[in-house]
Simulated scan of single mutants.
Amino acid sequence: MTKPVRSKSVAELFGAPEFGQEGRDRLVRAALELFYAHGFHAVGIDQVLHQAGVTKTTFYKHFESKDDLMVAAVRARDEWESQAWDREVRKRAGDDPRAILLAYFDVLDEWFNAPDFGGCIFINTAAEFPNPNDPVHQVAAEHKRKARDSFRDLAKDAGVRDPEAFADHYTALFEGTLVLRQVHGRNDAARVTRHAVEALLAGG
């Protein structure tokens, strides 16, 4: 009998963010873990301080408020996740732009089937802070804009006729796939939409 393949954890797939041991880094790390697990509104500063093992004096040395800490945490996640995704897709696709655009959905599929999948923190952030003028919403939105721009640049490199239109369509598929998994619970969401990406590339 064939032994079933064990799904990788998120840490096995992407690695883990690296933080230093200084007070600010410990606060950002603790905040990011707690906000991702429980949401921003449900987590108080005292919980962050307890998990980080620092005092309020240390907190106010680095941040004026919880809002500032939230922005720093989401920004740290943005920097780490962008690098982690780029590394993983290039492991599968090398430098071929068309292969990279497909590999994003292969990585999505692995992530969606990780036992500790927790959803997209940037979608979660925008949902908790829907006001587009809110600084933490803006950090999440900027992450999504940068992703869309990277898809456009890959389309240019792949020789797609209209990279801007392609980026809009591809981004709609990418974000829709996240919703299909996160809201509808479809572990196979990336496999379903990958066919649409193949058709989009074939038409480009």
Rank of each mutant, 00 (worst) to 15 (best):
T2V: 12
S7E: 09
K8A: 14
A11N: 09
E12G: 01
Q21T: 14
E22M: 01
E22C: 00
R24M: 03
D25H: 14
D25E: 15
R26E: 09
A30N: 13
Y36V: 07
Y36W: 09
H38E: 09
H38F: 12
H38N: 03
F40D: 05
H41D: 05
A42K: 12
V43H: 06
G44L: 01
D46F: 07
V48Q: 03
L49R: 10
L49D: 06
H50L: 11
H50S: 08
G53T: 11
T55K: 12
K61T: 11
H62F: 10
F63G: 11
F63T: 04
L69D: 04
M70L: 07
M70R: 14
A72G: 04
A73K: 13
V74A: 00
R77T: 11
D78C: 08
W80R: 04
S82N: 03
S82R: 05
D86V: 02
E88L: 08
V89S: 01
A93D: 06
G94W: 03
D96M: 01
D96L: 03
R98G: 07
A99K: 15
L102Q: 04
A103K: 07
A103I: 09
A103D: 06
Y104A: 10
V107M: 01
V107N: 02
E110Q: 14
E110C: 04
D116H: 08
G118M: 13
F122Q: 06
E128R: 03
E128Y: 08
P132D: 06
D134S: 06
V136H: 01
H137L: 06
A140R: 05
E142H: 13
R145H: 13
R148M: 12
F151P: 12
R152N: 05
D153L: 14
L154S: 08
K156G: 13
D157M: 15
D157C: 12
V160H: 14
D162C: 05
D162T: 14
F166P: 04
D168I: 11
A172Q: 09
L173E: 05
F174W: 14
G176Q: 01
T177G: 02
H184G: 05
H184Y: 07
R186Q: 05
R186S: 08
D188T: 08
D188W: 02
R191V: 10
R191K: 12
R191C: 00
T193W: 02
H195W: 10
A199N: 01
A199D: 04
A202C: 00
G204F: 10
